[in-house]
Design a protein around this nucleic acid. Structure first.
Lengths: 356, 356
DNA sequence: CCATAAAATGATAGCGCTAACATCCCGGCT
DNA sequence: AGCCGGGATGTTAGCGCTATCATTTTATGG
């Protein structure tokens, strides 16, 4: 450490350098001093307990308890380039669809000391770039996208960031990195076939107009048309669109509108169980019997589905599984293991209950 | 640029010191070099654009775009002790109750470049300490608790951490720091009075057994008893308890159990709209007319409440407002302004609709 | 008893950024 | 000319932690 220009004149005895420590917080340094070891040993006692001696570990633990030390994960993350953070992007927090996935993800990650950061993309792609900056800037160890579409620009940025990315709730041929989801396009034909087996002759779909719901709806309408059980003249005519943020009321009014247009409809595929619940309510209010007059199929198999009246027939997707697998994929990557199966199809299943 | 110590003996040409830069990431240094300014000036161009000259700002911006630089917020947070992170603790992610608050909070904070980190406490207090460590370790600029509780030890730790804390969804005399919520105890009497005005003679409460719901239920039962309109012999006997994680089905079966015990009940206060929905379903299945045979009151005024059949009378609390105010309180604190009103009561309101 | 490997600990130098202070530059005023 | 004020920019030194390598201590065997 060479001093600079001045050398003579020992007048300023101590430069009394600044200290930015405003926090008054306890640092690893303090713990180490109290335990009588070097900071790095204290660090090891915390993060790799197996490499330090029993005795040392004890002393450090005691010092931690005495001082109430909480490691600064920002500093640790900066030094080790492991932030122990995983970012999740959801279109919206309200709406039970993705919550289960996030919950499973959060729990799995919490087990190994990881936290989850949430970003809301909204259903428009406007603020997306900003959101990406916020996320990438935090240098998370992984990013989980809940089926969000992304601009080409966004996809490139994500890929370039060198952060493990898991896309969920969808199935596309070219994921940014990894993917765990299911094919929305495969659902339509299966549901259409199910309706035909149940004897429906004029089915329609009541769907939110967010991107994935639209794909389910269109594949359904096309299949129904091909099977000659579509209620409308064309596939498109058999679709009734709802705003992306659905609720029971939206479903209810949507069904009313659908009946207006296609009074003889005898089967409805809904883009979510919430919408289906609205259809059930409207049907009941109009004295339509379910499933005799109109069969109703939901999507999601949410908690309330089996308790509806009649119990809701619906398409189940394993939201939990997606969360767990997404967590595992990221953790595996972080651990340096290479992931062979970068694309996982969790599939779906039609759960036949009373409503169809 | 002074070379260092060695001068003679050019044998070891370069000490070839380690470089931990595994990321290959672009740093502020790179941007600064490209823009022809010092790193600190580049930093200012980003964070305090108003203090640098127009020309410099432009050059830095261009360099950022060219390199695809994304600031490392971990490093920035460490250096400035401002993490631009706010942690939220919820009992559970599923369940729509708190989501609206978190959504509002997230949106407000995103506007000013803050992110939200989520922690799940679960309804038991076991992992709480671990969760607190994880949160405090991240050095968030604020912590939002949905619901107070928390072990004495936890409260002390939070207070000691020196981080602004906002408790929400409750109202207690001695918050850790700040609070925005409403009094659960005040709700019971108002609802009881409402039932009496509606002419109910034998009311009961069907409630989840999480801490705050219990307080609402007990205050209601006590008030109903005092008004002599309780269905049970004692206040406690007028309560039917449900597990904390409620669903439509749980509410439905809970109501069935309640009817078993108190067949002549003519008014039910439910701990959430979801439970109320179950009650409505069960009533319908049994041919009980609502509100003629039994009046039903929910709690939360969730999105579906007005669309139920009959429309649900319920207690509304402004979940959005709580999120917004919580965000504002924290931001104000972060900005160094002192907060005079550290306790905000957002109140509640009974929304009379068809079910009671 | 000493060589040798293995285990435990320590010294050093950053990770990428910003606070605090220092310097420079330029116009305006005496 | 000389000095002052203030805006723009630069220098220095960390923030609190850990990767890397160096050193010390301990176990092991010949």
């Amino acid at each position: 450490m060479a001093s600079r220009v001045q050398r003579k004149s020992a007048v300023p005895p101590a430069p009394q350098r600044k200290s930015r420590r405003a926090h008054g917080g306890v640092t690893l340094q303090d713990v180490a001093r109290l335990a009588g070891v070097s900071p790095i040993t204290a660090s090891r006692a915390i993060n790799q307990p197996e490499v330090v001696s029993e005795d040392t570990r004890e002393r450090v633990q005691r010092a931690i308890r005495k001082t109430g030390y909480t490691p600064n994960l920002l500093a640790g993350g900066l030094a080790s380039s492991r932030s122990r953070l995983v970012a999740v992007v959801v279109p919206t927090l309200t709406g039970p669809m993705f919550m289960e996935t996030i919950q499973a993800l959060t729990e799995r990650l919490a087990e190994v000391g990881y936290q989850v950061m949430i970003g809301q993309s909204g259903y428009d792609n406007a603020r997306e770039d900003e959101l990406l900056s916020a996320i990438i800037g935090r240098r998370p160890d992984g990013i989980v996208l809940t089926g969000v579409v992304h601009s080409a620009r966004g996809r490139v940025r994500l890929a370039a960031a060198g952060i493990p990315v898991v896309e969920t709730w969808d199935f596309i041929p070219t994921p940014i990195d990894m993917l765990v989801g299911f094919s929305h396009e495969s659902i339509g034909p299966e549901v259409a076939t199910f309706f035909r087996q149940r004897g429906c002759k004029r089915v329609a779909v009541l769907s939110a107009d967010d991107e994935r719901a639209v794909r389910r709806a269109k594949s359904f309408a096309a299949a129904a048309h091909a099977l000659r059980i579509a209620a409308g003249k064309t596939a498109e005519a058999s679709c009734e669109w709802l705003p992306a943020l659905t609720s029971l009321g939206v479903g209810r009014r949507g069904f009313a509108a659908l009946l207006e247009r296609l009074p003889r409809v005898d089967g409805v595929f809904c883009s979510s169980d919430v919408v289906a619940q609205g259809v059930l309510a409207e049907a009941q209010a109009r004295g339509l019997r379910v499933p005799e007059d109109v069969a109703v199929m939901g999507f999601g198999d949410l908690a309330f589905a089996p308790d509806l009246h009649p119990p809701l027939t619906t398409v189940r997707v394993d939201a939990n599984e997606m969360g767990r697998v997404a967590a595992d994929l990221i953790l595996k990557r972080v651990a340096g293991e290479s992931v062979r199966k970068r694309v996982v199809d969790v599939g779906f299943a039609i759960v036949g209950r009373g409503s169809a």
